[in-house]
């Protein structure tokens, strides 16, 4: 058989790219980038499979590796912390040059063996794949290797169970139920806790950020509606300053439009009772 020109071109395009991507595995600092490199290699591998008359394996490669295995990798990366960039400084003395040497040596040995070995003339899979590649594969897999396949099935089930067992976290304290939480809240009432959820931060015409307190029924800002962290950091904004800024803006707009008349048909849906409400709703409109 002969290799078609298209395949040759495909190979010479893909092979350097795949090699580069694989080298990225060694050199990139972030694990996520490494995962993307590997994904590229695997997709390229799938394409090469298809080109090599192994269309079934090509599909399986995409489904299993890029679809399942690499997704699993990404999940674990997210669990571990996707931001972490690895330091590439070597800590084990001599490991770096040893690794480089061994990698290059291994490549040299393998390439040497390949170049030294004499292969029979390529037969090609046209004949074997006459009944289509999946059928040909199935005939071998389910006839000659049926026992191995079943064993591998068992292995998969076992591995799945192993994954469950290994990542299972044993509970070391009794489970906290709704009832426990409710009881705790009621018990904490004397310390100033409330039964209801805390009020949400304020929502204003131009501002609905977490750092601005809401206004209470009496128009006073509710400090505890701002998340505690922001308050402690001193990042909470003052509600009155926001209101004042909005009011001055509204006033300027109205003056520009010549509509200095007060807003008569104010809908009284909210609990907001001060003048800010008018300005606010006017702005909404």
């Amino acid at each position: 058989m002969t290799v078609s020109g298209g395949e040759t071109a495909l190979f010479w395009v893909l092979a350097p790219l795949m090699t580069l991507a694989a080298l990225g595995l060694i050199f990139v600092r972030r694990a996520v980038h490494a995962a993307i490199c590997v994904m590229f290699v695997m997709v390229g591998m799938a394409i090469l499979y298809v080109a090599q008359e192994a269309s079934f394996l090509g599909v399986v490669q995409v489904v299993v590796y890029t679809g399942a295995v690499m997704m699993l990798f990404l999940f674990v990366l997210m669990l571990v912390g996707i931001d972490a960039a690895d330091s590439l400084t070597e800590t084990i003395r001599g490991q770096r040059w040893l690794g480089v040497l061994l990698g290059l040596g291994l490549a040299a040995v393998l390439l040497g063996v390949i170049s030294a070995a004499t292969f029979p003339p390529a037969v090609g899979l046209a004949e074997a794949n006459a009944v289509t590649n999946p059928v040909a594969l199935a005939r071998v897999l389910l006839a000659d290797y049926v026992l191995a396949m079943e064993v591998v099935g068992v292995l998969l089930v076992t591995a799945a169970l192993a994954g469950l067992v290994l990542t299972h976290r044993r509970r070391i304290s009794p489970k906290v139920t709704q009832r426990d939480l409710a009881r705790e809240r009621v018990a904490a009432l004397p310390q100033g806790r409330t039964l209801t959820p805390l009020p949400a931060p304020g929502v204003y015409a131009q501002n609905n950020a977490m750092d601005t307190p809401a206004l209470g029924p009496d128009g006073a800002p509710l400090e505890h509606s701002v998340p505690r962290v922001l308050r402690i950091r001193g990042q909470a904004r003052s509600a009155t300053a926001v209101l004042a800024a909005e009011e001055s803006l509204v006033a300027r707009e109205l003056a520009d439009a010549g509509l200095l008349t007060a807003d008569a048909d104010a809908d009284d849906d909210g609990a907001r009772a001060d003048g800010a409400r008018d300005a606010h709703q006017g702005e909404e409109r």
Partner: peptide, 14 residues
Amino acid sequence: YVRTYAATMLGGLG
């Protein structure tokens, strides 16, 4: 260190 063991294994393999 696992990596040292891996290096040893690979060296042996080579």
